[in-house]
Amino acid sequence: MATVTITVNGKKRSAAIEDRTLLVQFLRETAGLTGTHVGCDTSQCGACVVHVDGKAVKSCTMLAAQADGAQVTTIEGLAQDGALHPVQAAFREHHGLQCGFCTPGMIMAAVDMINRYPAGLDEETIRKELDGNICRCTGYHNIVKAIKAASDTMRGMAQAAE
C-alpha cells in the first residue's frame, strides 16, 4: 500500500491504494469518475484515454503510482461552467457517437490531437492519429468530421484571441 496524490480535473485527490492499482481503477473506483471507460483491458481500444500532464495516455496501461504527483484530466474535466468543450459540442453536432462507449477516449484523444496540430488537421491526419482508438459503431466517418470541425472552431477561437 502507498499513498498517492493525483490532481484530477484540478482537484487534489489522495488515497492509500495497492501499488498494483491501475490509473483507470483509481479514477473510476477511488475518485468515482466513471466517464473514463475500460473497453479491451489489453491496451488496444483507447476507451480509457486521459491526459496525464497534458498528454494523452491509456489509463489502463499505467499504474496510479506512476501518476503520483501528476495532473490528470478526464472527460469530466472538459466542460467549463456547464458549457461543453468545443470537441464535445462538435461530437454532438456531427453525431460522432452511437452507443457512446468509446466516446470519452475518442474525445480525450481528439483534444490531444488538436493541441499537437495547432495549424489545423486534415482528414488523412485525423484518421492516422486515431490509430489508438477503436469504435465499433460509427465506422469513424462522423468522428473524423467532428474532430475536423472542432479543430477548425478551436483554431478560429485561438486566432480571435490574438
Binding site: 491496451s43 484515454v49 498528454k55 494523452a56 484523444a109 489508438g132
Partner: peptide, 9 residues
Amino acid sequence: IGDPHVRHM
C-alpha cells in the same frame, strides 16, 4: 510505433 498514446509513454 504503436499509436499516439503509446508513443507518449
